[in-house]
């Protein structure tokens, strides 16, 4: 079922000052079966937004609709949604089996149905050998799978996932990411996934919503956001290494269409003689598959990513060039995009 947010506002009371606004009128439509990733830096309000959808925070203004039904004033348990918490929040005294069954028992499902549902989910997530264990006897990856199992066993209309992979090591995170994506597609349920990791955002989401200071900066498909960021912030936030934002003064006057421009590192070409900008090599990072060169220009830092390993060394001066089609113009170095 779809999830809709309409003008969601939330502020937190402060002891000695006026309430601190966290969400400023968020509007978001998540169609049925879509996985949307809400991404943003720490303090951007993404977890608060998720908690508002779950009903764990009361809205100051606005409404939350699940499947077209206004659930703004419903208790969390009445919204027919499931949530996976960042710290997973498994019940430490209950076995894996009892953890998974908890929600069904809380809703007074018949014991036979509970047993069948738990067995099904345990099979899907390969948890069968672990059903008798306590959470303290599981690895990080296993706990994460139990938390997922607990969410899907109730067959809710939508899933909320709050940085569920943040406590896993990088190798496990990659695998878990694929598992979550596959599971969500198989179940066909709407999912709202919060993360501050832009790689997770790019790889998991059908769409991405970038949040900044409690406002939606841009919503769209991952590659759309990557290629056409609506602001310098989105350009910098998505992509590793990030988009370089420079003053347009480094360009020849005929090419300047706004105060600043952005360029993706893989679009920057290093040239020996002819080029647009003179730069000094500061740092060279060999990633393996490619090399990232940190360059200093007269108007700021510029990153270049090249597939080869034969690159200029720190201290050398190089010319760099970029094609017009690869440049994205912004009102300022922290401003909105300017459409050519």
């Amino acid at each position: 079922m779809s999830v809709s947010l309409r003008g969601v506002e939330k502020a937190f009371a402060a002891r000695s000052a006026a309430p601190i606004p966290v969400l400023h009128g968020i509007d978001l439509e998540v169609p049925d079966g879509e996985m949307i990733v809400i991404v943003g830096p720490s303090g951007s309000g993404k977890t608060t937004l998720l908690r508002c959808i779950a009903g764990l925070e009361e809205l100051d203004r606005g409404s939350v609709l699940v499947g077209g039904r206004d659930v703004t004033h419903d208790d969390p348990g009445e919204r027919d949604i499931a949530m996976v918490f960042q710290e997973l929040a498994l019940y430490p005294h209950l076995t894996v089996r009892a953890n998974i069954a908890f929600g069904l028992k809380a809703r007074k499902s018949p014991p036979a149905e509970v047993a069948v549902a738990v067995a099904d989910v345990a099979r899907t997530l390969e948890l069968e050998p672990l059903l008798g264990r306590l959470p303290s006897e599981l690895s990080g990856g296993e706990r994460q799978r139990v938390a997922l199992a607990r969410a899907i066993v109730r067959d809710p209309t939508a899933f909320l996932l709050d940085e569920p992979l943040s406590n896993l090591d990088p190798a496990l995170r990659t695998r878990a990411r694929v598992e979550i994506r596959t599971l969500q597609r198989d179940l066909g349920r709407t999912a709202i996934y919060v993360t501050h990791d832009q790689v997770e955002a790019m790889t998991l989401g059908d769409r991405i919503a970038v949040l900044r200071n409690g406002r939606v900066e841009q919503v769209g498909a991952p590659l759309e956001l990557y290629d056409h960021p609506a602001s310098a912030f989105v350009g910098r936030f998505l992509g590793t290494p990030p988009m370089s934002i420079l003053s347009s003064e480094v360009l020849t006057p005929d090419r300047r269409k706004a105060a600043a421009f952005g360029i993706r590192p893989e679009r920057v070409r290093l040239a020996d003689a002819d080029g647009d900008v003179k730069a000094t090599v500061e740092v060279v990072e060999h990633i393996g598959s490619s090399t990232v060169v940190h360059l200093r220009t007269s108007h700021g830092e510029l990153l270049a990513r090249t597939p080869g390993r034969d690159v200029p060394q720190p201290g050398e001066t190089v010319m760099v060039s970029f094609a017009d089609r690869d440049i994205r113009f912004f009102e300022s170095e922290d401003g909105r995009a300017v459409t050519p």
Partner: peptide, 17 residues
């Protein structure tokens, strides 16, 4: 931890449960 209470609330557990 508060999170297990939030998990119980989302799971639809009553205060007595």
């Amino acid at each position: 931890p508060g999170s297990i209470y939030e998990a119980a609330a989302v799971d639809g557990a009553s205060p007595l449960f």
